[in-house]
Amino acid sequence: MRWLAEVHVRLRPGIADPEGQTIAGGLRSLGFDSVGEVRAGKLLRLSFEAADREAAEGAVSSMCRQLLANPVMETADWELRADEEPPDEEEA
């Protein structure tokens, strides 16, 4: 069956994030004075085939380890759900 994973790739805590700092500055200049730290990251949405949830979890974990995140500077976590078929024309 098909699965949908939303993978969040984040800079490790403690690593300076100038992009996040710039975004925070922009928000404050708009008047959102209470904005504290902003951390920028990446959201990757993956659709893929796997026999069951365990296999799907294993696949995402392996993808993160091998390519999607660099453990020197990043962490990855994800949400996984069944990728539902798009509704038929008639039903829609």
Binding site: I15, A16, P18, E19, T22, N70, V72, M73
Partner: peptide, 11 residues
Amino acid sequence: LPGVLLRNDHL
């Protein structure tokens, strides 16, 4: 080689 190269601090 160890480590990584990140975005310049001034962007």
